[in-house]
C-alpha cells in the first residue's frame, strides 16, 4: 500500500506548514526506506518557506505497519520517547512533528530528522578490527538513556510497571506465546527457567527495548543515531545490555559478544561512564535468557503475520522459521551459565 498517494500530498504539505509555522511546505521527494518489519519508513525531502524551519530538510516519516504488533508503542508514544531520549542527550533522530489523525495519510505517523549512516548489521560486523570505540560510544548513549527514570516529564503515556521488570516480562512473554508455550518444550523450559531465577535486586529505567546492531546508524566509524524506538518502556536496564549482546544480533561474528562489533568490556565500560551504575553481569545473563525467549516468541508472531494471510511476506515467513536457531542459542546460553555456576 502506498502511504503518500498523489491526492494526499497537498493535505500533508498544508499540515506540515501549520506545524512548522511556515508559509508553505513542499514535499520534493519520497523514497521508501527499508528495515521496518514493524513500522513503515519513508524518506522525504522537504522545502520549507518561511518560519523558523526555513530551508531544505531531509526527514523520515514513520507510520505504523498495516498490522499492529502486540508490543509496539503507538506512533504518538514513540514520538514522546524520542523526545525524552533527545532531551537526555542520547544520539537519536530529532523528532519534528506527530500526527494522530489517521485521516491525513491513512495511519498515524510522525516525522523526524533523517540521520546519515549505515545500519546493516552484515556490513558493520565485517570490520577487520573490532569497533571498540563504537561499542564504547553505544554504551555511553545507553547509559544516558537509562538515567531517565519513572516520573520523568513527558513519559506519562508509558504504561507504569505494576510488578518488577522480570515478572512483568514473563507475564508478557506468556501472553504473546499463548498456546505455543504448551506445545514447544524448549519455550516452556525457557519460561520456567526465567520464573525460577528471578533476580532479587532489579532496577527500573527507560529502556530502548530493541537496542542492537542493525538498529543504529554509523558513519565513518562513529555512531550518528539510535533508531527504532517502538519497543521502548520501563524495565530493568540490564535488559537492554543483554539484548545487545545476545548471539541473535552478532550477525555471524560470534566471537565479538557486543553486537558482533566488539567485546562486552568495551560496551560495559562506555555504559558505566554515563549510567551512574555498574553493570551486573549475573543480571545481564538473566536478561540474556529472557532475550532468547522473547525473540523465539517474536519469531513465532512474525511467522504468524505471514501464515495468517494478512501480510504475506518472505521475510516474515523466514523469521518464523528461525525459531530453532534462537532456541539453540538459548540452550547454549543456559549450558554456559551452568558452567559459570550461576
Amino acid at each position: 500500500m502506498e502511504l503518500i498517494v498523489h491526492e494526499k500530498r497537498p493535505a500533508l504539505e498544508a499540515w506540515l506548514a501549520e506545524r512548522f509555522g511556515a508559509d508553505h511546505v513542499r514535499i520534493d521527494d519520497v523514497d521508501r526506506l527499508g528495515g521496518g518489519a514493524v513500522s513503515e519508513n519513508l524518506a522525504l525531502v522537504l522545502q520549507v518557506d518561511g518560519g523558523p524551519m526555513q530551508g531544505w530538510h531531509e526527514a523520515v516519516l514513520r507510520a505504523a505497519a498495516a498490522m499492529g504488533v502486540d508490543a509496539s508503542l503507538s506512533k504518538t508514544d514513540e514520538f514522546a520517547v524520542l523526545r525524552a531520549a533527545c532531551q537526555a542527550g542520547v544520539a537519536a533522530p530529532e523528532p519534528l512533528a506527530v500526527c494522530l489523525d489517521a485521516g491525513l495519510i491513512g495511519r498515524p505517523f510522525y516525522l523526524m530528522r533523517r540521520a546519515e549512516g549505515v545500519a546493516s548489521g552484515h556490513v558493520l560486523v565485517k570490520a577487520d578490527e573490532p569497533l571498540r570505540a563504537l561499542a564504547r560510544q553505544l554504551g555511553r548513549e545507553l547509559g544516558k538513556l537509562h538515567r531517565v527514570r519513572p516520573g520523568a516529564a513527558g513519559l506519562e503515556c508509558l504504561p507504569p510497571l505494576t510488578t518488577d521488570p522480570a515478572r512483568k516480562a514473563i507475564a508478557t512473554f506468556r501472553g504473546w506465546a499463548g498456546a505455543e508455550a504448551g506445545r514447544d518444550p524448549v519455550l516452556a523450559y525457557g519460561l520456567r527457567w526465567l520464573e525460577r531465577n528471578i533476580p532479587a535486586r532489579q532496577e527500573v529505567a527507560l529502556c530502548h527495548g530493541d537496542f542492537r546492531t542493525g538498529n543504529y546508524l554509523v558513519q565513518d566509524g562513529r555512531l550518528t543515531a539510535i533508531l527504532d524506538w517502538e519497543f521502548a518502556g520501563w524495565s530493568d536496564p540490564m535488559e537492554d545490555l543483554a539484548w545487545f549482546c545476545a548471539r541473535s544480533w552478532r550477525f555471524g561474528r560470534m566471537d565479538r559478544e557486543a553486537g558482533g562489533i566488539a567485546d562486552r568490556a568495551d560496551l560495559y565500560a562506555g555504559y558505566e561512564e554515563s549510567a551512574g551504575r555498574a553493570v551486573d553481569p549475573v543480571r545481564v545473563a538473566y536478561w540474556e535468557t529472557a532475550a532468547y525467549v522473547r525473540w523465539a516468541i517474536m519469531s513465532v508472531q512474525q511467522g504468524r503475520r505471514h501464515t495468517s494471510g494478512v501480510e504475506p511476506s518472505l521475510q516474515l515467513a523466514l523469521t518464523g522459521r528461525m525459531r530453532p536457531e534462537i532456541e539453540h542459542d538459548l540452550l547454549l546460553h543456559l549450558d554456559a551459565l551452568e558452567g559459570m555456576g550461576v
Partner: peptide, 9 residues
C-alpha cells in the same frame, strides 16, 4: 510435546 510442556511448567 504437550505432555512434556505441562510437566515442565
Amino acid at each position: 510435546s504437550r505432555r512434556l510442556c505441562a510437566a515442565i511448567a
